[in-house]
Nucleic acid binder design. Structure first.
Length: 324
DNA sequence: ATGGTTTTTACTGCGTC
DNA sequence: GACGCGGTAAAAACCAT
């Protein structure tokens, strides 16, 4: 994978700057003394020959107005290149070779030239599709990064998500699906695999894609890639909820305990893991006399209060029976 | 598409601060 | 009276078939 010579950012800024400072007319005169103006290349100024008035500074572009701290950032921010259009898969940045066997003047090409052009077309097409995949990847990875930090997911999850996305790309799973959708699905899967799951609702909140599409794409990706994702363990939600609600270690421990016995009793099957976790946290707080309302828990867990009520009754009941 | 299960929504009543 | 909590019925969402 080598550095693509093509830069992806548009040239908007440069163009507007140019419009604001039109080319200086040679015969323009100094506004003060009507003296002849000369441009001083070394200092990039235009000065009056007679009175020394500096008429214009900074004619030349001394470089980017932004700073880049590493190569990747520089690559991202670079504004060199042709204007772009979103109507082409590569935003019109790549080379196009006409299909007609004519030269720039409209004359027909010799057969030797024709063959050469044909070869060039072939290769150009190959590079272009490879390029488009890379751009695709770049965009997706950026998106994954954005969502991951919004959800407070650690580095290793992003890594995993990237790997999943790459595999999806390799296996040609993209056609017919949006980059966004697959990126989101990858992250969702990665978070679950890493044992730091985020509910579909939470994911949806930071994604640009509808919940349905995420779920659909997720199932598809999992199936096609043969990924094994176990159903989320309710316990894996507990630490996050507990810390969001600023609850004690003890409460957290109790919540875990409740979930364990729930598993043993088998009342957890079929119920949503998030709901179970939320209920356990609430029940745990109850047992340690910490004040949390059902409403509080329902908000951090994005689960209805009713579900919490139903679940935590079951949890406590199961706990009592095992003790007895 | 369908039917069974779970979750959500909306509403009501009770007790407490 | 607002708030937290509990319960219920009906609607919606989910899931396997």
């Amino acid at each position: 994978m080598t550095d693509s010579p093509i830069r992806t950012r548009s040239t908007e800024r440069r163009q507007t700057e140019r419009e604001e400072s039109p080319a200086r007319d040679e015969r323009e005169r100094c506004p003060e003394c009507e003296g002849r103006l000369v441009s001083d290349a070394e200092h990039a100024e235009t000065v009056c020959e007679d009175c020394g008035l500096v008429v214009d500074e900074q004619e030349i572009d001394r470089g980017p107005e932004w700073r880049a701290f590493d190569a990747a950032e520089k690559d991202q921010k670079s504004r060199v290149g042709a204007p772009t259009t979103n109507m082409m898969h590569d935003q019109g940045l790549s080379t196009n070779i006409g299909w007609q066997d004519k030269d720039a003047y409209g004359k027909s090409l010799s057969s030797r030239q024709r063959q050469k052009m044909q070869r060039l077309r072939t290769w150009n097409e190959r590079f272009r599709t490879r390029d488009s995949k890379e751009r695709n990847l770049k965009q997706a990875l950026g998106e994954i990064d954005r969502m991951a930090s919004a959800l407070g997911l650690p580095e290793n999850v992003r890594e995993t998500a990237s790997v999943i996305y790459r595999r999806a790309l390799e296996d040609d799973l993209l056609p017919g699906r949006s980059i966004e959708g697959v990126a989101t699905a990858s992250l969702y899967a990665a978070a679950r695999q890493a044992g730091t799951p985020r509910s579909l609702d939470e994911i949806t909140a930071v994604s640009r894609v509808e919940k349905d599409e995420i779920a659909r794409t997720y199932r598809y990706v999992i199936r096609e890639l043969g990924l094994e994702v176990k159903p989320a363990d309710p316990e894996s939600y507990v630490p996050r909820f507990a810390s969001d609600l600023e609850l004690s270690e003890e409460t957290e421990r109790r919540a875990r305990q409740l979930l364990k016995t729930a598993k043993d009793t088998g009342i957890h099957s079929g119920k949503s893991p998030v709901g179970l976790a939320a209920a356990a946290v609430y029940a745990g707080a109850l047992l340690t006399n910490e004040k949390v309302t059902q409403n509080d828990v329902s908000e951090v867990a994005s689960i209805s209060e009713v579900t919490i009520r139903n679940r935590y009754h079951e949890l406590l009941e199961a706990e009592e029976q095992t003790v007895a």
